[in-house]
Design a protein around this nucleic acid. Structure first.
Lengths: 134, 134
DNA sequence: ACTAAACCTTACCATTATGGCAAGGTCAAA
DNA sequence: TTTGACCTTGCCATAATGGTAAGGTTTAGT
């Protein structure tokens, strides 16, 4: 006997917001869910699992676009794990790229901050460097 | 003798796009620039410096909101370097937070990817884990 | 049975920083 | 004078999420 949840409960179960669940449906990530006579969306346990899947992929930083692919692979019993791993590796590359970018900012910013006395005087190397051409 | 540049040249000089320069003016980050009779924006060297300042701050990841503060400090000869350093430190904290978040994703993703054979078989630990409740 | 609270619905707007396109005006060189 | 390379404004789009408002529904308490 399938327990059907309204969107608020589905949100609690999945860790997503009701707002986002509607949005995912709207944007084609999720199929339109069945409705009550009054128009309330209803979710069964399979759909709740799908919502959890989405949340966990979001937590790992996957874009909704990528999640669409992941969902399709998940639901395809014939998929080759090669394809999944490829997506994962691609995502790892993106993550590494962002980290590198941030670390570069971090390094430059740290140097700048270290060279600023941070006292009551107006002299500040940070502003000086930002103002420098180049 | 102040050389005046049109927006395209100002863009080349500063490394910003003409589009963004207009946008910064529109959003109040920059004062409205003088215009020719035909309505073309004109930039003098001081303004070019300001554009460079903005670009460099953007490259370091400062938000436009923060850049507004930085510009104000830059132009205030009375500023206390304490305030600048505070902004810098705050930004460094944000950067560190983002790095930590990404590194966490990286770690989990790496474990997942490592546990996926990535061959022709459909079995894939990545999808299994994403599908797990929790 | 009635009412109030707690849901649900849709639709619109905002965020952040950036890009694209289109329709039209301007300027300079050939 | 024509043409190409500029410039102008205005509108739309992105990615993912939140907010609000106006209105319908359901449920629990009186």
């Amino acid at each position: 006997m399938a327990t059907l949840l309204t969107i608020g409960d589905a949100a609690k179960e999945s860790g997503l917001s009701a707002k986002m669940i509607r949005h995912y449906e709207q944007s084609g990530l999720l199929r339109k869910s069945p409705r009550t006579d009054a128009g309330y969306r209803l979710y069964n346990s399979e759909q709740i699992n799908q919502l959890r899947f989405i949340r966990q992929a979001r937590n790992l930083g996957f874009s909704l676009h990528d999640i669409q692919s992941l969902l399709a692979l998940w639901q395809d019993p014939q998929r080759e794990s090669r394809v999944v791993k490829q997506l994962a590796q691609q995502h790892l590359d993106e993550i590494a790229g962002k980290i590198a970018e941030l670390q570069h900012m971090q390094q430059v910013m740290t140097e700048l901050a270290d060279s600023c006395r941070g006292d009551g005087s107006p002299h500040c190397h940070i502003l000086q460097q930002l103002a420098k051409p180049g």
